[in-house]
């Protein structure tokens, strides 16, 4: 997989994010939901950012969504050129939340705002399984 190698940033889960990474490790994408007002929340917070309730639960996502925006990265964060372009993206999940991610298995010239995507996984270590997304449906046929 391009752009994924020894220089890869390795997440170190915190008390707040551990449930996310535990579920990710089993192949389940999840986010917090406020039990009191049903607000969908990501990244994790210690209280609901709509109603400040601390009555939060972790809920599984279908992992299906649409690309809200993207940028074709030609440079790594350290300023070095990437061997091949990488797509950084913001995906709207169908439950009504969004996350930063990468789009994989998609040539940069085919990526477009609004395209349907589904979660797939990149295993970085025995404990970190990173959610990324790839095109589904028509976007795939177009390739």
């Amino acid at each position: 997989m391009s752009g994924v190698g020894s220089q890869m940033f390795m997440p170190e889960p915190s008390w707040l994010s551990q449930p996310f990474w535990d579920r990710a490790n089993k192949g389940t994408l999840s986010r917090q939901r406020c039990v009191d007002c049903q607000f969908e929340m990501f990244p994790p917070q210690f209280a609901c950012r709509r109603c400040l309730s601390t009555n939060l639960e972790w809920a599984a996502s279908t992992g299906l969504g649409r690309l809200y925006s993207f940028t074709v990265l030609c440079m790594a964060p350290d300023g070095s050129p990437l061997p091949e372009p990488k797509i950084l993206a913001d995906v709207n999940l169908e439950e009504g939340w969004h996350m930063m991610t990468n789009i994989v298995d998609c040539p940069p010239e085919h990526v477009a705002c609004g395209m349907a995507v589904a979660v797939t996984w990149q295993r970085l270590s025995t404990t970190i399984n990173l959610p990324v997304f790839s095109p589904v449906g028509e976007a795939n046929k177009a390739r």
């Binding site: 940033f9 997440p11 889960p13 915190s14 994010s17 990501f42 964060p77 930063m100 990468n102 970085l124």
Partner: peptide
């Protein structure tokens, strides 16, 4: 942890 693994930086 929810930004850096994807290769994000300020300009991105």
């Amino acid at each position: 942890e929810f930004v850096a693994p994807y290769g994000a930086f300020t300009a991105a």
